[in-house]
Design a binder for these strands. Structure first.
Length: 429
RNA sequence: GGAGAGAUGGCUGAGUGGACGAAAGCGCCGGUCUCGAAAACCGGUAUGGGGGCAACCUCAUCGUGGGUUCAAAUCCCACUCUCUCCGCCA
């Protein structure tokens, strides 16, 4: 959620910023409501003050044995009714205001490239070059089946298209990757590991910015109004919902591995082969609550934490600064990390790292006590994948494949896998 | 799923419809004392909104939403959540 004070004081700036995100003018009504609401509040409060004052007098009079006249009662009843009516009006306007505010995306920071879609995003650095292989590398959908580690057909049988089973060396590799990443982030990068519910309540989805606008992309349990998380970012954002974090506790850094569920309705027909775009996948997610002044520096570090995984796994990767039109709803600034996959000859997005500034914290009513005291402040929140499992699996399988069809395990993973190579074999079943 | 108990400030915990944003204690902050600290004593200590340059004024908030009343933490209704016991169960 944007700050209403900021919108009120800088309407033109906000309009311009929202326009770069493809928003047409959606703050005119907000500004009108804001003015009307404040006027009504003043009126209502004056009536309430009057009511409180006179009621107190009546109470004192009565305690001294005087009768409260029916006339005085009727008069106060009338004032009360007027105040209630104004209160009702305030609530209605407030509700409408809330609806509007929930649909406004975060403002891009200055310096974020302006553009309509992914073509406007900028590659800011690249690590390594796509290797030239002396044989024809296979895409993972072929290789995975041949190795007997990805079973598309039976996954589809169980849950429909875009679901799959990992088998044999497949889930072992995934487990190893998860452990490797969690250990790296907790031991070397200062994160605390946390394990979370994979379903959340409606208001939790609102806090992170996924609802009300993006219900289409979520799986939902009608009976209990629970929503399957599309990323661990959702529950972590709301950990401190409606709380004031004590002084001297920021930054708070969490890393979590969760399943992620995405309906991908908007992407029907895209990337239908393989496990690049699926409805359920595992992801290791980094998340931070930080002091506002430090959020951009911390974002740079967080990106490096994700890059560290890529470097240690020996990936060729590049980092992109997303443009205004390509960023997520809650983000003010986002860097994507893409790794090269030799088989499908594609750059795969394995991480998206964002500074959501105070946007999510305000929606979730999270505040913190600063060292200097004074009013509670709103922290900034950062999130980034570290990393998404299926695409990392793709990169490993495709990039480390050998001419004989086997896959060599990267050095750093071997303590976790317990094997050095996924042997070539014809799947028996 | 069945039965019962409860929900009040950072925490514990009082609160006969009127002086209650709320006793007391703890915690925390500041001060006195001290070489320093502890103890003791004194003072301060919720959040959000509206108005004001400011001092400050004012409104709302005692789980949530309704209701009764001139007036509700307190009375009435509904809901939610938590805890305990029983049943079922990974």
């Amino acid at each position: 959620m944007l700050s209403i004070e900021h919108i009120r004081e800088n309407p033109d700036e906000v309009r311009a910023a929202l326009k770069t995100r493809g928003e047409d003018d959606s703050i005119t009504e907000v500004l009108e409501l804001d003015t009307a609401i404040r006027a009504t509040i003043t009126e209502r409060d004056n009536l309430n003050a009057e009511r409180n004052r006179v009621s107190k007098e009546l109470g004192q009079a009565r305690s001294q044995g005087q009768e409260v006249s029916e006339e005085a009662r009727a008069q106060m009843r009338e004032i009360g009714n007027q105040a209630d009516a104004l209160n009702e009006k305030t609530k209605e306007m407030g509700n409408r205001m809330g609806e509007l505010m929930l649909t406004l995306p975060n403002l891009p920071q200055s310096g974020v490239p302006v553009g309509e879609d992914e073509t406007g995003s900028i590659i800011i650095r690249q690590n390594g070059e796509p290797p030239v292989m002396d044989f024809e590398p296979k895409p993972h959908w072929d290789l995975g089946e041949e190795l007997g580690i990805i079973d598309f057909e039976r996954g589809t049988k169980l849950a429909g298209s875009r679901f799959y089973n990992l088998v044999d060396y497949g889930p072992k590799l995934e487990r190893a990757l998860i452990s490797f990443m969690l250990d790296l982030h907790t031991n070397d990068h200062g994160y605390t590991e946390i394990s979370l519910p994979a379903v959340v309540k409606r208001e939790i989805m609102e806090g992170s910015g996924n609802l009300p606008k993006f219900a289409d992309n979520l799986y939902h349990d009608d009976e209990d109004d629970l929503w399957l998380i599309p990323t661990a970012e959702v529950p972590i954002t709301n950990l401190y919902r409606d709380e004031i974090i004590p002084a001297n506790t920021l930054p708070l850094k969490y890393v979590a591995q969760t399943p992620c569920f995405r309906r991908e309705r908007a992407s029907a027909g895209r990337d239908t082969r393989g496990i690049k775009r699926v409805h359920q996948f595992n992801k290791v997610e980094m998340y931070q609550f930080v002091e506002p002044e430090t959020s951009n520096d911390e974002l740079d570090k967080l990106v490096d934490h994700a890059e560290d995984v890529c470097r240690k796994l020996g990936f060729t990767y590049r980092v992109l600064a997303l443009c205004t039109g390509d960023m997520g709803f809650a983000s003010s600034k986002t860097y994507d990390i893409e790794v090269w996959a030799a088989g499908c000859q594609e750059w795969l997005e394995v991480s998206s790292c964002s500074n959501c500034t105070d946007f999510q914290a305000r929606r979730s009513n999270i505040r913190y006590r600063s060292e200097e005291g004074g009013r509670p402040r709103i922290p900034h929140t950062l999130n980034g994948s570290g990393l998404a499992l299926p695409r990392v699996m793709i990169a490993i399988i495709e990039n480390y494949q050998q001419p004989d069809g086997s896959v060599v395990i990267p050095e750093v993973l071997r303590p976790y896998t317990g094997f050095d190579v996924i042997p070539a074999k014809k799947a028996t079943i």
